[in-house]
Amino acid sequence: MEHTADWELEVWGPDMPALIAEAARGMYGLMEVKTSEDSRCHRRLEFFADDREQLLVSFLGELLFLAEAESLAFDGFLLKVDGTSLVARLEGGSIMSRSKEIKAVTYHRLEISETERGLETSIIFDV
């Protein structure tokens, strides 16, 4: 979606795990990430948040950190959401290339709402 300086991503899914996975795929898409198919890696991550929006921001923020600090990106998401906690089992690989930098996932106007498409939100990234 159009945003003067930054990027706004609209995502939806039938439930929280689907919404979170879609948001992650969308974020990697914006970063134009390409990963290696050779050496696959697995991670298990846990998140506890005050609300669903914070859960989403925390998860995406961790993926940004792993992309930069360990050069890892994921395409397999097994996510279990219980209220406002999340257990994520991730499969991915080393980043071969990424052409865009995202500085951060913001809370700006962030709200997860229930619509006929399931859960829907739009996320603004600082780039």
């Binding site: 005050d50 929006e53 921001v57 925390s58 923020g61 951060a104 913001t106 809370y107 700006h108 962030l110």
Partner: peptide, 25 residues
């Protein structure tokens, strides 16, 4: 990362200090 960390931890701080804001960011 420093800004990300503190925007996250300040989500709780605003509750603690009873600060009402038009935008969470």
């Amino acid at each position: 990362q420093i800004c990300t960390d503190y925007v996250k931890s300040f989500q709780k701080a605003v509750q603690r200090y009873g600060i009402r804001l038009p935008d969470r960011e």
